[in-house]
Simulated assay, not measured.
Amino acid sequence: MATSNFTPVTFCDICSNAFYFDVKVAITDCRFNINIYKDSCQETQHRAVILSIVKDDKRMVACCSGNNEISAVEMELPHTIPETSHKALFYLKKLPAHNKFMFESSVYPSKFLGFEPDEDNPTLNKLVLRHKTSDEVDETAELTLMK
């Protein structure tokens, strides 16, 4: 992934149930996985996804926890998601710019995944929810997916 200004970020660690990304180019193979759910996009035009990583042999999923927070929750990935809103479910929205996307919370409409610099360590970015209206431009909620 990359931030809105194309600064590459790589998953770094989970600390206090929050996901942290390093703005430096990482040497490790740790990746944030995007799990796509094909059946759940029937009511919207956007793909339903769950974001996760594996840490210490545990699947940790990015979940909305209120107050613009994203928490790391240990959970097995479901095969199907019957409901249209779930704390781990985001809607992947393609933007007109090449490889740019937004991840909208299924629980909190108009709130999107974004990065916020850590107050104690500016080289780390915390994964958070950012409020954005449909006519508002918020580049901090626009992400570029990288291979």
Rank of each mutant, 00 (worst) to 15 (best):
S52I: 05
Y20D: 02
F101D: 01
V137E: 14
F32T: 08
F112Q: 04
G66H: 04
D39R: 00
T7L: 02
T80G: 00
P109N: 12
F115G: 04
D57N: 14
E43D: 12
M60L: 15
F112I: 12
L51R: 06
F112S: 07
A2E: 09
I50W: 01
F32N: 01
F101V: 10
N17I: 00
S4Y: 02
L129A: 05
A141F: 00
E43T: 09
E43K: 13
D13G: 01
K93V: 11
P96K: 09
M146T: 12
R31V: 11
E104I: 03
L127N: 02
L92K: 14
S40T: 10
V25E: 11
V73E: 12
M1N: 06
T144I: 04
N5T: 06
T140W: 04
E142S: 09
E136W: 00
P8T: 08
K111A: 02
Y37G: 05
T133W: 11
N5G: 01
I14T: 12
E104R: 10
I27S: 14
E43A: 07
E104W: 04
L127W: 01
H131Q: 11
A26S: 15
K24D: 11
V73H: 09
A48Q: 06
N68V: 00
F90V: 05
D138W: 00
A62P: 06
T44K: 09
C15A: 07
Q42F: 07
I34W: 06
V25M: 09
F112C: 10
L129I: 08
S52T: 11
A48V: 07
Q42I: 06
F21N: 01
I27N: 13
N125P: 00
L127R: 03
M75L: 10
D135T: 15
M1G: 03
S16E: 14
K100A: 00
L51K: 03
A18G: 06
V49P: 07
N68W: 03
A26H: 06
C30N: 10
H46D: 13
S134W: 08
Y91P: 06
C63G: 01
P82N: 15
T140I: 07
H46L: 03
L124G: 01
F19E: 03
D13N: 09
L127K: 01
S110Q: 11
A18M: 02
Q42S: 07
E142M: 08
M1A: 09
